[in-house]
Amino acid sequence: MSNKAAIINRVKQQIRTQYDMPVLPIKGIEYADKIAQFKETLRAVGGEAVELKQGEDLDTVISLHYPEAKTIASNLEDTTLATISPDNVNSAHDLKNIDLAIVRGEIGVAENACVWVPQLMKERVICFISEYLVILLDKNSVVNNMHEAYEQINFHDSCFGVFISGPSKTADIEQALVVGAHGPKGVLVILL
């Protein structure tokens, strides 16, 4: 089998003219109202964003949106709805019949409705295997574009982080858009 040194040496020998790195970051688009833009983009990609208003109760808002959800996975203290925690299972497979997962996002991106979700839980599978996904997001953490977002992302020493933009989707059959390919059929971002 080849080893690192052999391959890297070969690469080195093959390089001819060398080029400089351009200056980064570049200036990305900015929006007059980032939150409005975030909401609009999220709607366009099949998701939904709502703002939690003064005096509104988070659990009530979630229950009203998903009245049929029975098995709810979360490890957040913000909600009392959880019936199972991704931190207290023996195997990720124990989370296979989840109706709803509630997780925390840390950055929202106005240009493409991405929400940065680092893996602050033992089993991240709940983000993908549940039928529907709720992401809690501080509305002050919405940025304009991905350049700004990547300046700020934090893994908190975890093994994984993902930008989620709306529900899972596919257009592999005749380019007809179908929401809910493998992952959640709907994503609700609640701006706190």
């Binding site: 980064l24 983009t41 991240r124 991905m146 350049h147 933009s165 257009a171």
Partner: peptide
């Protein structure tokens, strides 16, 4: 920083979406 440039271009060029639904960063084993 470079990644942000490519992520902004990739899905827009590929399918005309602002981004793919998932942009996943694998850093360590589970």
């Amino acid at each position: 920083q470079s990644l942000s440039v490519f992520i902004r271009l990739l899905a827009r060029s590929a399918t005309g979406q602002p981004v793919t639904a998932y942009t996943s960063h694998y850093r360590k084993p589970r």
